[in-house]
Each structure stands twice: as C-alpha cells, then as structure tokens.
Simulated scan of single mutants.
Amino acid sequence: MRYKLTIEYNGAGFSGWQIQPDARTVEGELEKAFSKILQRDIDLIGQGRTDAGVHARGQVAHVDIENVADVQKLIFGVNGLAGKEIYIKTIEEVHSDFHARFDATSREYAYTILKDSSPLQEHLGWSQNGDLDSTKLHECAALLNGEFDFSGFSKFNEENFTTLCTIQKSTFEEFDDKWVYRISANRFLRNMVRRITGTIVEVAKGKLTVSEFSELLENPDADVKSFTAPAKALVLEKVFY
C-alpha cells in the first residue's frame, strides 16, 4: 500500500531534508526508523528538498509499506525512534500512482522577521535591530505576482530543468513584534525564498531601491546583488495537491 505522510520538523540540527553521505538529514533519520521497525529497506519520497537549517510544518512524503496490520502503531514507533525534532503528524492511504513530488501543485513558505532582538524567538526568527520600511516590504512583495526567471534569486543547480517559477501569493503580515512573509509558488529553486526575503529586507533598510529589486526580478543578469536571509527563520508551511 502507498501512504502519504505529513511531517513536521525542526531543521536546526539537520543538513536539510534529502539524504546525503556523512550528513544527518530528516529523510535519512525517518528511513532509518522505518527500516529498523520493519526490518527491511524503506524508500521515502519527499515532495522536495528543504535546505540545511530550514524547518517544516507540513512537509509531505510518500512511502510504500507492505504487510503492516496497524499503520498507526507503526507511525507511533517511527516517531519514537526518529527523535523529538521530527514528528509524523498524519498518515493516509493513497492511490498507488500518487507521487508526493510530481502531484504537488504548489508549496507555501513563511519567513519570520523579528522587529527587535528576542531571546525567546531568536531560534525561529531573523532579528532586525532597527526600523524596516513596511511600505517598501509591501511594495516588493506585490511585485512578485506571476511567472519570473528566478536565477538571480537562487543558487545554481545543474539539476534544474528551468529557473522559471510562478508565484501565486506574496504578502507580508505585520504584528506588534514581527513581520511574517508568506510566499507560495508552483515550485521553488534552491535558496530562492531566503534570497528573495534577504533582498527585500535590504530594500526596507534603504540599502537597495524598489526599482533595483524590480530590475533583478525582471532581468536575472542585472548588475544588482541579491542577499540571503538566514535559514533558521524559514518554515515550509504546506504542500498543496
């Protein structure tokens, strides 16, 4: 049977989602836990990667499991072995041709920008000691609507078949102590959300202009430098099917 898993994790102690040699990853820890209980190799297929240090509230993966009488008991055991940083929230039986990656229609991320230093929130937010121009935050976010070539806002990856992505939502929510940037798209490139966010913050600080941000968005080869925000404040919120 094929099962769809929804997974939450704190990415601080991992080198990302995808299995890597000699590195601790979320996928690697989950596969080890499944294999230990089932006494056979298990291949977990995620909807996509998250970078080192990035968190997830709604990562999705699928797995094929045979001859298991009680899948809820199995997941209880996997959660126990995987440790407190990872938690499988739900498991549901899906059709045998369901694919966590290829069937996904969009993904949504949230990035938290703290208005001031906050020891209680520092591990999940990026502190800005000084005012950001909220008008410029909203102006930049509003420019991200539709399909763009994001090669100017991403780390080169030879596996990319295209650097075009379609943005479906790009908004800032303001609270007393923070801003939360929410962005959803059909696909994301490596470091893309962090570079978009980091560059928008540079605009809000007055170090770049809205026009320069727009220029880089419209022309990836423009002579405008992008900036990368820290991984610790980024969360994969949800994957849509």
Rank of each mutant, 00 (worst) to 15 (best):
E8K: 14
G13S: 14
I19K: 15
I19V: 14
E31D: 02
E31A: 10
F34V: 13
S35T: 11
D43V: 15
G46K: 08
V54C: 03
G58E: 10
H62V: 11
I65V: 11
V71N: 01
F76V: 09
V78D: 09
V78G: 00
N79K: 09
K84H: 14
I91C: 13
E92K: 15
E93Q: 15
V94M: 15
H95I: 12
S96C: 14
S96K: 15
S106H: 02
R107P: 00
T112V: 09
T112N: 08
K115L: 08
S118F: 05
P119C: 06
Q121A: 15
E122N: 12
H123D: 12
L124M: 14
L124Q: 13
W126C: 14
Q128T: 05
Q128G: 01
G130V: 00
G130R: 11
L132N: 10
D133M: 07
E139T: 10
G146R: 12
D149C: 13
S151W: 01
S151L: 06
F153V: 01
S154F: 00
K155W: 01
E159D: 13
F161W: 06
L164E: 04
T171R: 15
E173Q: 15
D177P: 04
D177H: 12
K178S: 15
Y181S: 01
A185S: 07
A185R: 06
L189W: 04
R190S: 04
M192Q: 15
V193P: 01
T197E: 05
G198I: 11
K207M: 03
T209Y: 03
V210Q: 03
S214W: 02
L217R: 06
E218Y: 11
N219G: 01
P220Y: 01
V224C: 04
K225W: 11
S226F: 07
A231P: 07
A233I: 03
V235C: 09
E237L: 10
F240G: 04
Y241I: 10
